[in-house]
């Protein structure tokens, strides 16, 4: 394997900020509040915290250990555990790569909306504006319509931003995250403060926080809580493995994992106040229940929020702040996914960083053009469902299975504890051996069964085959081929060394 330029974090704070930035994304603002409302308000928050401590934090510690103690990007770390596991590392970063191809398109939407905010271009009908003017949405997934030039321009800008953010790996990221992590937090606090001063804001907050304890007895709430934890922490994409590989040898992994996981959860929790306060206000204006105006995902950000912004004082400023927050929330997640992939490519093929960055970005950009067509939203929705529900849970399951059952878990725990102030007990072994694999396989199987019974989103079966199963099959086949390459590269390196 050729020598590659390995960079380290400039400080512990830089690593923590980068990992928090990776974990915090659009989901903290547009998914968590909705799921919370849907599954019992405050009861869901409690279920979420329990899931975080039982599965999320142990899995995060596991990924840090793989990257820092075992060493290397996801493919290399798994190859070092055993030659036959290298493909799992590749599967993780390939899933992350496919996600970035459409995540950058969502960022392009937000970038366009940032510009629209100055003149409130969405007017009095944000729904038609979003679907017809911005997306040029067609009537079906088979009808691609035309490529939306403004989205392609936005996409190019987003990819330039992503590549520049990781240009020299951890060295550049160490500087960038001081801005991209703190800016969205400052804006979030501003939006929460402003939101809470609106009339009827507390009616919205009541919807958010009032616990319906009976929900805790339903398996769906636990399924949703574990899913949200998996989604939110950026585990299962090889990102945290790559980031931890840039840490110096004596780092406290347990403490880092606690700060990062809790900060991510705290952001989602505070994000709920930003969303529900304005929904309470909007519901009051409309004279309806908060439930009637509650939305999630792109609909919340690009239709409901602009509609609400129309009624707020200093509307253009609120719009600019809101979409700038979305952009800065998303950029860290996007470049961390790319960095995880780039690190794997560099360590396997010995390629130079600059060229690898550009090559990966160019391929991802070209794939991303599909999502800028008139059928882009449909494909994005479909691919997202398959990549997150199947890719993420499958990788989470495989990771815990490998470490829990095919390696000496106790030895890994001792390695983690060697430099940690707060030592993790044997409960971690139980979590990694049983809890994480069981939780992820249950989530995976329930998703598969759900899809078999009813096609996701009502899309035709052929579209599911292409955008779902075919893409997953490509990811698995590529992972197996590239895994062999990583093993070869490690052999060459050890024979040279």
């Amino acid at each position: 394997m050729a020598q590659t330029e390995k960079a380290y974090w400039s400080s512990r704070t830089a690593f923590i900020l980068a990992s928090i930035g990776s974990a915090i994304g659009l989901g903290n603002v547009w998914r968590f509040p909705y799921i919370c409302y849907k599954y019992g308000g405050g009861a869901f928050i409690i279920a979420y915290l329990v899931s975080l401590f039982l599965a999320g934090i142990p899995l995060l510690i596991l990924e840090f250990a793989l990257g820092q103690r075992i060493g290397g990007s996801a493919p290399v770390a798994f190859a070092k555990l055993s030659k036959k596991f290298a493909w799992i590392g590749w599967l993780a970063i390939l899933v992350g790569f496919f996600i970035t191809t459409y995540y950058a398109v969502i960022m392009s939407w937000a970038a366009n909306y940032l510009v629209y905010s100055f003149k409130l271009s969405w007017g009095s009908d944000p729904k038609s504006f979003f679907f017809d003017k911005v997306l040029g949405l067609t009537d079906s997934i088979a009808n691609f319509g035309s490529i939306q030039t403004h989205l392609v321009i936005g996409l190019i800008i987003m990819w330039v931003w992503i590549v520049l953010s990781i240009w020299k790996g951890a060295k550049t990221v160490s500087k960038v995250v001081y801005f991209t992590v703190t800016i969205p937090w400052l804006i979030l606090i501003t939006l929460v403060t402003g939101g809470l001063t609106l009339p009827n804001a507390f009616e919205g907050i009541k919807y958010y926080l009032t616990p319906k304890w009976s929900m805790l007895l339903k398996p769906q709430i636990w399924q949703a809580a574990f899913t949200q934890v998996f989604f939110s922490l950026s585990v299962g994409f090889g990102v945290m493995i790559a980031y931890a590989s840039f840490l110096p040898p004596k780092s406290d992994l347990v403490n880092n994992a606690m700060i990062i996981a809790l900060s991510d959860a705290a952001t989602a929790y505070v994000g709920g106040f930003a969303v529900f306060s304005v929904l309470g206000y909007y519901a009051g204006l409309q004279g309806v229940e908060v439930a009637k105006v509650m939305k999630s995902g792109p609909e919340l950000a690009f239709i409901t929020y602009p509609e609400i912004i129309n009624h707020l004082p200093l509307a253009p400023l609120v719009g600019v702040l809101f979409f700038l927050m979305l952009l800065t929330l998303a950029i860290d997640s996007a470049f961390s996914l790319v960095e995880g992939f780039v690190a794997g490519v560099m360590e396997t093929f010995g390629t130079r960083r600059g060229r690898t960055n550009i090559f990966v970005a160019a391929v991802a950009f070209l794939i991303g053009i599909i999502y800028t067509t008139g059928a882009g939203l449909y494909w994005l929705d479909l691919v997202d469902h398959y990549m997150t529900f199947f890719g993420l849970f499958a990788v989470g399951f495989l990771e815990a299975l490998v470490v829990g059952w095919f390696t000496d878990t106790e030895k890994i725990r001792e390695m983690i504890n060697a430099h940690s102030i707060v030592k993790i007990g044997k409960w971690w072994n139980v979590a990694v051996k049983f809890l994480v694999p069981i939780a992820s396989i249950v989530l995976l199987l329930s998703s598969v069964i759900g899809i078999i019974i009813k096609p996701y989103g009502g899309y035709p079966r052929w579209a599911e085959l292409v955008g779902g199963w075919l893409l997953l099959a490509i990811a698995v086949i590529l992972a197996i081929i590239l895994g062999k390459q990583t093993v070869k590269a490690l052999k060459v390196k050890s024979s040279e060394g």
Partner: peptide, 30 residues
Amino acid sequence: MFTSPWFTFVIASVVLFGGIIWSIIIAKRK
């Protein structure tokens, strides 16, 4: 009390922000 939104507010705030502050204090002591 247990069915009040304030209950969730106190529990979640203490666990999340208390946990972050505690973890940072521990890290600084090292």
